[in-house]
Design a protein around this nucleic acid. Structure first.
Lengths: 193, 193
DNA sequence: ATATTTGTGGAACAAAAGTTCCGTTAATAT
DNA sequence: ATATTAACGGAACTTTTGTTCCACAAATAT
């Protein structure tokens, strides 16, 4: 048999994701990733293919981990309004905690690339639909349990919630302060009843 | 005196803006702009400075024209709820009319660059604040005229409206269909009362 | 211990990006 | 008509980007 890889495949993929997330696809060069991660050029190309393939892999990884976790929360929560509130708090906190205001990788990527790259567009679309379905399902359960009124159509409410979560990711790049986030979250949640 | 420019300075600036708007800062090369606009390299650099300066000029142009127009509408409208509704309809239409789904140049630019470029961050922040003030002023007038109830704080409602408009620009990159937009707009406007 | 086979280091490269420079051209003020 | 001065065309150049290739290294099955 042949020798084994000296680097952890998942770890490098994760770090590459952070690069693309932070600086965008066109703003990140293979060289930067190599410098930071210390693996050799040939290993990078050998393992992940070219730059675009690597990017697509990181986007899928985001979908499977970050988006996946949110969907799991929505699928399993016993307290729907509380979980929705929590997601908004998390969105706010990620904008003011120590680390960078990276926003959402999926949002950043679709804004940069979705018009020009069909594969990115497809991933992004699938991601949106999966999230919408998870929110819709959770809202339905919330309504059945009496945690939410039946005044709103579940899918419409789901779409509205997502619109406001995405709006917050844009706000995170706009120099808005905490009060702005609090106002938006308060007003949005006033509809989630 | 010297000879006059063979190109229209404003027109080239406008076309350069469309490039950056469509393909992003890092996705657009000076060469592409030159190829399309037909002016010479030296004229471009002579007139607008380097690529980044040109970009900054186009971003300011957007602020002065597109954002300026929205602010003007809000400052002068006699029917505030109607104007707000109109802005949402325009946001929706721009996603489905013949031309490209470019989204909002200000949103695209801040998502791509605001973390890394202080000057972009400043323009983007100022743009947000100017818009928020215009919405807030309009909402106050609407409340005084009895077109809107006084249940909502004007500034909080303004922030909420902007959050949903920006959310729509993200939706325009997400492969969402008309029904998604209609649900979001209906739910958002249900709060604008 | 060796053969096998894949990983690794790094040289090398073509193309593109971003910019500068300069000789030439052409408006216009006088 | 000419001098003046800025615009123009395009050659040229330095980096950076994205990628390939190959000689060498090392893990493991036998």
């Amino acid at each position: 048999m042949a020798r084994t890889k000296r680097f952890d495949e998942e770890e490098v993929l994760n770090n590459a994701m952070l690069f693309f997330w932070h600086k965008g696809y066109n703003g990140t060069s293979p060289q930067e990733i190599l410098d930071e991660l210390g693996l050799s050029r040939s290993s990078l190309y050998d393992t992940y293919g070219d730059k675009r393939s690597l990017f697509i892999s990181t986007l899928k990884r985001y979908r499977d981990t970050i988006t996946g976790e949110i969907i799991h929360m929505l699928d399993t929560t016993e307290n729907v309004p509380e979980t929705i509130k929590l997601l908004f708090q998390q969105a706010k906190n990620s904008c003011f905690s120590g680390d960078e205001k990276r926003g959402c990788f999926m949002v950043n990527s679709k804004v940069e690339l979705a018009i020009h790259d069909e594969e990115v567009a497809a991933i992004v679309k699938e991601n949106r639909e999966a999230l919408e379905n998870a929110f819709t399902g959770a809202i339905k359960r919330g309504q059945e349990k009496g945690q939410l009124s039946k005044d709103n159509q579940p899918r419409a409410l789901a779409r509205f919630i997502m619109n406001n979560l995405w709006g917050l990711t844009v706000h995170s790049k706009s120099g808005a302060d905490k009060k702005v986030f609090d106002d938006i979250i308060r007003m949005t949640l006033s509809v989630v009843k």
